[in-house]
């Protein structure tokens, strides 16, 4: 079983066709996965070759050139590089700042959360060591990227830093590693607890 995103997600990120939360998760994964970075790099090289091989269009571009030269002085400077962080990939660091000062919010004992984009259900969860979230399933897909530590999914095995898990409409249960786990989630819809305890816990997680 692969622990990387599907090939089409890498392609969509490489061409810039996808700017969604899924692309954000893929971008985070790239920083942790040399193999997928290599794939994206090759797709970009092909893009460059195709661009260089294009024939100029028939349009004269003097007006564009003139307008552009007039805008150079007012152009903002390039953004500074996002610093390396031992836990957060650069897209997360750029969003939240360093992991050491991340604004975690306790939702239930042993689980903390940071919302990145409530509308599209993109968030981070930080699990204490050995936590076993209640069994649940999802509306649509749940995409998980492990950023630190790891967990064991009872059906799909071990997941560690850099691993991606994609779960559809199936019940799944996990237990966190002894080091705990920090993971990025991109969900299509709400999770649906399959136990009474889970139903109580989900009220906190979803609100």
């Amino acid at each position: 079983m692969s622990h990387c995103p599907p090939e089409e997600w890498l392609f969509d990120v490489a061409t810039g066709a996808d700017a969604s939360s899924v692309a954000f998760l893929v971008a985070c994964h790239l920083e942790l996965c040399p193999a997928c970075t290599r794939t994206v790099r090759e797709l970009r090289i092909s893009g460059g070759e195709l661009l260089a091989a294009l024939q100029d269009g028939p349009t004269e571009l003097q007006d564009v050139e003139r307008a552009l030269m007039g805008r150079l002085d007012g152009a903002p400077t390039a953004p500074v590089d996002v610093p390396f962080d031992p836990v957060f990939p650069r897209p997360v660091t750029a969003w939240l700042g360093p992991s050491a000062t991340a604004p975690w919010r306790r939702i239930v004992p042993g689980i903390q959360r940071i919302d990145l984009d409530r509308g599209s259900r993109t968030f981070l969860l930080c699990f204490a060591p050995g936590v076993r979230p209640p069994a649940h399933r999802h509306v649509g897909l749940e995409r998980t990227l492990v950023l630190d530590g790891g967990y064991r999914d009872f059906r799909h095995g071990e997941f560690r830093r850099g691993f991606v898990q994609i779960v559809g409409d199936e019940v799944h249960e996990q237990v966190m590693d002894d080091d705990g786990c920090i993971a990025l989630f991109v969900n299509d819809g709400p999770l649906i607890p399959t136990t009474w305890l889970g139903r109580v816990a989900s009220w906190f997680v979803e609100t």
Binding site: A19, A27, E31, R38, R41, R44, D81, V82, P91
Partner: peptide, 24 residues
């Protein structure tokens, strides 16, 4: 291209920062 899409749905960062530093 990505920036123009994000202009309509402003969120996230510049993906430059992710891939460029790790490109061999």
């Amino acid at each position: 291209r990505v920036d123009r899409m994000r202009r309509d749905h402003p969120r996230w960062l510049d993906l430059d920062d992710v891939v460029a530093p790790t490109e061999p």
